[in-house]
């Protein structure tokens, strides 16, 4: 088991080792949906929720797999569980909160291929976190992902109002922005492990 405290794990996953800006996980949605605030925030929350569910499932699954010495099946099992978790979340949302379901739309099924979700499951296994530690880790990762998405969206919304040379526009500029944001997040180094 890892000796880190719960708050340390949370802060580390959310800020110092931010999933998007320091560990390069989940870049596709980060660049894809961060153009506007009203898609970025719900996407962040939905991903955070799937991370939480996937992390809990992965914890139970890992116990089961180690019990039967089937570690080589871990990757396949995780990805299947994540895909089903996303499907489940989709069905529950559709039944109980159709408004939120419509707001999220196409982004919901796309969470399956978000590497931040699989990343949470893989990292918590590799670091041998306990149940509570895994919980704190996935909550921190989700919070960090949402934070990065919201920050980036607000920067890009402002950018649309400013004059930018034509050549730079598009992905190149978004990447430069992400670089600056990532540099700012390096200031958190030392918070957490």
């Amino acid at each position: 088991m890892s000796p880190e405290s719960l708050s340390q794990i949370f802060l580390s996953a959310a800020l110092a080792n931010n999933f998007v800006l320091a560990m390069f996980l989940g870049l596709c949605p980060f660049l894809g949906v961060s153009a506007r605030m009203n898609t970025a925030f719900p996407m962040g929350l939905a991903s955070a929720f799937v991370m939480l569910v996937a992390s809990l499932c992965a914890f139970g699954l890992n116990l089961l797999l180690t019990q039967f010495h089937l570690e080589f099946l871990r990757l396949i099992a995780y990805i299947v569980v994540i895909a089903s978790a996303v499907q489940l979340v989709e069905m529950i949302l559709k039944k109980h909160s159709p408004a939120l379901f419509r707001a999220l739309g196409i982004y919901l099924p796309l969470i399956t291929t978000n590497c931040a979700v699989l990343g949470v499951a893989l990292f918590q296994t590799a670091r041998e976190y306990s149940f509570l530690q895994s919980l704190s880790f996935s909550l921190g990762a989700g919070a960090g992902f949402t934070l990065a998405l919201v920050l980036m969206a607000s920067m890009r919304e402002r950018l649309q109002l400013s004059e930018v040379p034509g050549v730079v526009q598009g992905t190149a500029l978004s990447l430069m922005l992400a670089g600056l944001l990532s540099m700012a997040f390096m200031g958190f180094a030392g918070l957490g492990a």
Binding site: L175, G179, S182
Partner: peptide, 25 residues
């Protein structure tokens, strides 16, 4: 050093994309 740290990754990829955009233009 910043080039091997996370921000460097974003900057270098951004610079490559910029280069290709200039060539295309």
């Amino acid at each position: 050093v910043v080039m091997v740290l996370p921000p460097g990754g974003f900057f270098v990829l951004g610079a490559w994309l910029l280069l290709f955009a200039v060539i295309r233009r």
